[in-house]
Every structure is written in C-alpha cells, then in structure tokens.
Design a protein around this nucleic acid. Structure first.
Lengths: 192, 192
DNA sequence: AAGGGAATAGACAGAACTGTCTATTTTATG
DNA sequence: CATAAAATAGACAGTTCTGTCTATTCCCTT
C-alpha cells in the first residue's frame, strides 16, 4: 500500500526495537514509552514518522511480510529444481525457525488474535500476509503438478499455521516434521 | 486444578460477562472496570471471587475447556457408531462453529498469542486445552483403526488449528471443509 | 426478628497509556 | 559558514489501568 515511507536510520532503528519488543511481549502489552526508552529515541521522532501506534504496527507487519516471503522464496530457490523438494523445503525452513532461540509464534496470527475485529487495519494487514503466502504455495503446488493447486495450497496453509501454533505452545519443532510428512503424502496423492 | 471454586449466581454472571467481552475484544483490551460496569457488579465482588484479572482469565479458560470438550464429545456421540463418521463429525461441528454469528477465533490460540511467554499461567492453561483435545482425537483415531493414532491426531490437530485461524481471517467456513476433506483422506490411508 | 455473610458504591493510590506541544540542540547540506 | 530540516528533552493533558479500602446495605437462615 503505502510505499512512500522514506527509509531513515532513526526510523529503521525505531522499527527494529519496536519489532523486538512487540514480538516478545505483544502489541498491547508494550507501550510507546518503553519502545522509545529502549531505542533511545524521542517521542516526537516516532510521531513524525508514524501517525499512531497502530500505523507503526501496520508498517512493521508489512515489513515483516516482505522479509518473510523473501526468505521463503530464497529457501525454495536454494532447494534445487525438483518441484517436490522445493515445496518440502518450506517445511524444513519452518523447522529451523521453530528451533531458533527467539521463536515466539507467528506475529501475524498473534496480530489477528490481539486485534480480532475483521475490519481493523492490523487484522486485515495480518491476514493479507497469510493470503500472499498461500498464493506462493499455490505456485509451488502447480509447479509440482498438483491437479488442484489452490486446494492443495489451502490445505498446506492449514498445516503450516497449525504447526506454528503448536510450536508456540510446545516450544518444540516436532509439529514442523508432522506437517512436512503430511505435505509429502498429500503432494504424492495430488500429483498422481 | 483448582476445583474448590464455589459456584454462585454473581460469580457465574461475572464470568459470563467477562467471557463475552474478552472473546469479543481481547484480554488486554478489556479492562476490569468495563466488565464490572457491563455485569452490574461491584469491584469487590470480583476480587472476593478471584485474586486477580489473570486468575479470572485462567478460570474462564478452564471453564471453556470443559464446555468445549463436552460439546465435542456430544457431537461425536450423536454421529453414530461408525468410527470414521464420528471422527469427521468433529469437522462438521467446526464448520457450524465458524458460521455462527459471534465466532471470533479460538480463545485459546488468542490467549497463547496475547500471553506469548511459555511460563505464563494463561499461556500454559491455553495450551493444556489443545493437548486435551489432541488426546480426544487420538482416541477417535484409535477407534477408527489408525496404525499410528497419536501421529494422526497430531496432524488432525494441525489441520483444526489452521482451519480456525483461517476462519478467523476470512470469516468463512471453507477452511473447515478443506480440513475435513484432508482428514477423510488421511484417515482412509491410515486405516488401510 | 436478629445476626452474619455477601454485595454494594465509590473513593483512592499509583502507575501506565497515547498523543500533543514547545523550546532547544543537533545534524546535514547548500 | 549559514540555513533548514530533523531530533531532542520533557512537560503536559486526559484517560485508563489494576487492585485496595471503607462504610453501608442487602439478603438469607436460623
């Protein structure tokens, strides 16, 4: 949407700090004042770059969306040429993410949860990410010769989001492996 | 855990109001004062029954856990004797839930999200529910003759939680049908 | 009818919240 | 070096938050 945002060091540092605190503790749990104190930035600097806390959160989600999809795309690219391997690489990447020390769930699911109302800007932005990821998956499914790529991508999305929730609840990586195994099974069936 | 809680009309009414507001807007978004005003109850009444807001939330989650599992069990019971039908009835029930007018996601996933820290009482209580549901699913999978009931139950849990997140993002019931179809496929494979 | 436990209203403390404003200083650029 | 833009500290308003306390009133049971 809004790509007029000029990148500046202060702005970037503010966003990095805000991201860290929001992701660790939650959007409503973290106040503006804490972010400013941790970032060592004046309040007016924040309000010169963002008109409200809500807009800051939306900007963070959009940034994270871009980064995450880029990381996914890179993971797929590294996985080689086999369509099956490329698709399953997404699940291996999930497993690595779940195992990383500061994994704390999916910020988009958490945003949907904290701002549950359908019309809320943060809710919609968070869901936009999930739709975009599903479209990426559909591309991969199509490349793998699935008869119904969109349908398979929908199912894989369910598995992925379920696995993220489970990893957040257990702090274990097993759900990624379960999801991967199911994905492999479904892919084999769909490409038959 | 704590089953010493005496049931009283005031307490029940307070919990019903708190549930409605928390589920609609979120735990951190709803203040004690709003609950009290909506319930028409004095502040000391709350603090005579619960030592803190956190304890109120935990009590609500435990109550909802009991109700939800009872509803699931009833759904399964009504579905007849066929193990497959009993298992798939859970997904039909999901679809009905997603379509109900005040569906607003899964309160347990939302609690995990709002209190992301693993050691937090609310986080743990919320995850306990997911574990309990998974165990119910494992029973159903075993009855359906699955070779690895626990493994299948894990996968079905992923599908269910993914479907709930998707329904919260889309306000549509389609994810329940996708999950159901996948569950049916997996069940057929597992019972072979 | 009397006594006791529960509920009440409402003040209160003390902190935290978002967002605004001003006056000053720093920083970058011509 | 000069000027304009950006960032600063910090006060401020006005609200909201959880939890505590007191003094009064309601209601149920004996």
């Amino acid at each position: 949407m809004s790509e007029t945002e000029t990148s500046s060091p202060k702005r970037d540092h503010l966003m990095a700090t805000a991201w860290r605190l929001f992701y660790r503790d939650g959007f409503r749990a973290v106040g503006i004042d804490l972010i400013l104190a941790e970032a060592g930035v004046a309040k007016m600097t924040l309000y010169n770059h963002f008109s409200s806390k809500e807009e800051l959160i939306v900007a963070l989600l959009e940034k994270r969306d871009r980064e995450l999809r880029a990381a996914m795309a890179a993971t797929v690219e590294v996985a080689g040429k086999s369509p099956t391997k490329r698709l399953l690489a997404v699940f291996d990447w999930l497993e690595g993410w779940f195992g990383s020390p500061d994994f704390n769930g999916c910020v988009f699911i958490r945003a949907l949860s904290e701002y549950p109302e359908a019309t809320h800007a943060i809710h919609r932005t968070a869901w936009n990410h999930k739709v975009a990821v599903k479209e990426m998956l559909a591309q991969l499914c199509a490349a793998a010769g699935a008869s119904n790529p969109a349908g398979l991508a929908e199912t894989l999305s369910l598995l992925i989001d379920g696995a993220i929730v489970a990893a957040h609840g257990t702090r274990a990586t097993g759900s990624a492996r379960s999801a991967r195994a199911t994905a492999a099974t479904l892919l084999k069936l769909a490409a038959a």
